[in-house]
Design a protein around this nucleic acid. Structure first.
Lengths: 196, 196
DNA sequence: TACATAATTCAACAGGCGTTGAATTAAGGA
DNA sequence: TCCTTAATTCAACGCCTGTTGAATTATGTA
């Protein structure tokens, strides 16, 4: 509770990172619109104007804080190496594995919340990630007609579960063990991948 | 373009309804947060304070404008009369039939957008609708273990598609004919209903 | 016709927001 | 040690928001 003083702090604290973390938390909790610079600054124990010093504007701060977490992207690559019959399960497992991790979740929540709210940057980021990192990779592995549509329907199922579990926290999906969910979801996702 | 005059208008226009329609449109387009009273008033060609005269507060206006459209609820009832083997298809068809109608869609978009944004009223309304009007009715018809979880997963798939098609407008799901989507989604939803 | 009441706008308020520029303090190299 | 530069806060701006109260005009009833 040391009283705030003006001027540079002693030591070499990585204040920039603390701001970014606070931003992710707040954006994840309430989305872009309801998140205020002042609240983020407060959460980071910092003056609001310092945020502008480091990130320029609220939009830019948001843009910086919604980069898809690297571990998530890496994990994804390994999915596409799997054999076709296993694609559904691997996809579901990876998806929830990432989401269950606190650090990734706050970022993803921010993206999802804001994208659904119509925030352009978030929507674009989400669209692009889904298109290039998921659809483009999955579609070729899929049999039957409309492979791209099928791929997006797989993704829709996962997004739907993320919505109900992490955003809206609907029971009993919110507190069910992931294993149960994967067990039920995986076969249906897989069936999209198999022609007919 | 008649210049605005003060005082009561001539004739008997149902201004209240016009305000409500405008509210639905705006809430549907941008969600609760970004929607401003002034924009709604403008859309309804009315002074902002008239909205307060009729609806009291922004929250109350929102609450009034997100009642689940009656046709939607009625349609739903007919689904549960169906035989079990047809449940998936009937559910999917009904769901999209309602969503494809302009009037219902703007309301549903408002609810969905705002619920995802964490707006309490919308989230509660959505939760309650899903619980009492969907889950409570579907669960008893479902075989296997965790019937309630299965029911919610069916709903998740539909919500996921609504998100990608109507909210985020992701291609190719956004402009695919509903028949194609139903054709693909129905069997997977159905398979949740059948035990294992 | 006179009058109560409903419908409508005008003008303003306080509060919160994103943002900016100047002032203050510490760190690090010459 | 001095001085440039980076980190940090202070104080304020202009704007937009939800909201309110008084003023104005029409409707419907007695």
């Amino acid at each position: 509770m040391s009283a705030k003083r003006t001027g540079r702090r002693t030591g070499s604290p990585d204040t920039r990172s603390e701001i970014l973390d606070a931003a992710k938390r707040v954006f994840g909790k309430v989305g872009y619109d309801r998140a205020t610079i002042r609240e983020i600054a407060n959460e980071a124990d910092v003056d609001p104007s310092l945020i502008y010093h480091y990130f320029g504007t609220k939009d830019q701060l948001f843009a910086t804080s919604i980069e898809i977490p690297i571990p998530a992207v890496e994990k994804l690559q390994s999915v596409f190496a799997a054999d076709r019959e296993d694609l559904g399960r691997r996809l579901a497992e990876t998806f929830f594995f990432v989401w269950e991790q606190e650090a990734a979740r706050v970022s993803l929540l921010g993206i999802l919340r804001s994208a659904m709210g119509g925030e352009h940057q978030a929507a674009d980021a989400f669209r692009q990630f889904l298109t290039t990192s998921v659809l483009d990779q999955i579609s070729p592995l899929i049999g039957g007609e409309n492979p791209r549509l099928r791929a997006l329907l797989m993704a829709s199922q996962l997004v739907g579960v993320a919505m109900t579990r992490y955003v809206m926290r609907l029971e009993p999906i919110a507190s069910a063990p992931i294993e149960d969910i994967v067990e039920l979801v995986a076969p249906r996702i897989q069936s999209y991948a198999a022609g007919e």
